[in-house]
Amino acid sequence: MIEKPIERVAKATPTGMARQIKGLSDKAVAWLFVGPTIFLLLAINIFPLIWTINLSFTNFRANRPNREVEYVGLRNYERILTDSDTWLSMQATAHFLFWTLLLQVLIGFALAWLINRKFRGNDVWTTIIVLPMMLSPAVVGNFWTFLYQPQIGLFNYVVSFFTGVDPSSFDMLGSVDLAPWSIIIVDTWMWTPFVMLICLAGLRSIPDYIYEAAEIDRASKWRQFWTITVPMVLPFLMLAVLFRGIENFKMFDLVVQLTGGGPGSVTEMASINLKREAFEKWRTGYASAFAIILFVTVFGLASIYVKALNKVKER
């Protein structure tokens, strides 16, 4: 009888290994491939999450690992939700979220719209505009502290150039009123390009012939903008808002670099507050509960938002 190729392969395989492989079903092989990934996911994401939930019901302190751990039930949650500091930090986060999203959407969309008009060198401009996004947040935070410096900072100088106010008369990072805005400005400077890129993708996805048809249908440029451009870019814009919203909810790096939560605690957003509780006060159980609350908040808001996004897409 003539040997089939598969039989030849089987013969050429060392017997020990062949016996091992032959015993495996397709399903087993599949698990073999997926297994390591699932293990890593469980070890790095799922287990810590469950462990955090567990810790949130205790008075555990990570700097005293040998102390006996007591279960305190919902006490941590109760204390967090009745603590005025928590609400202040939540307010600071909301303020920051609202303004960064608003500014980034408006400026990002406007920039995308300008870049999308086909002019010479628009690729170069895109690259220049996108530059801030490529920098590390630590670097950005660091050099903006210099720009904000009242005596030598370029930012104060530019503001005084346009308004005539004495540059050393105000301190962006040191003033209770201005400090939240100093962070909003830096975040907007850094992340508007991201919103612009996504809007640009949206604008580029609108085919020219739609505008030609509208032109023939005697729609003014203004009407074309509101009835064609905006509705067709909206899903992209909402996606950008989702990304930026989730990112900024956990805003940490820029704040640490610029104000460290101060002056006082006006820029102490939820994530900064959380870090203080966890790694300065070492109230691990309390911080765990706070982390869970934040997680549920982001998750809930994002789910509602994604539902809205899908509705817009269907429209």
């Binding site: 739609i210 048809a213 249908d217 005697r218 009835t227």
Partner: peptide
């Protein structure tokens, strides 16, 4: 003159409907 001023109607080869609008809205657009 611009296309709008000329008072012409055009049917394009690639449909060129407004994808985010309903059929009714498409027809009512002009």
């Amino acid at each position: 003159e611009t296309p709008a001023q000329r008072d012409v109607a055009m049917v394009f080869q690639q449909y060129s409907l407004y994808p985010h609008l309903s059929v009714r809205q498409n027809l009512a657009f002009p």
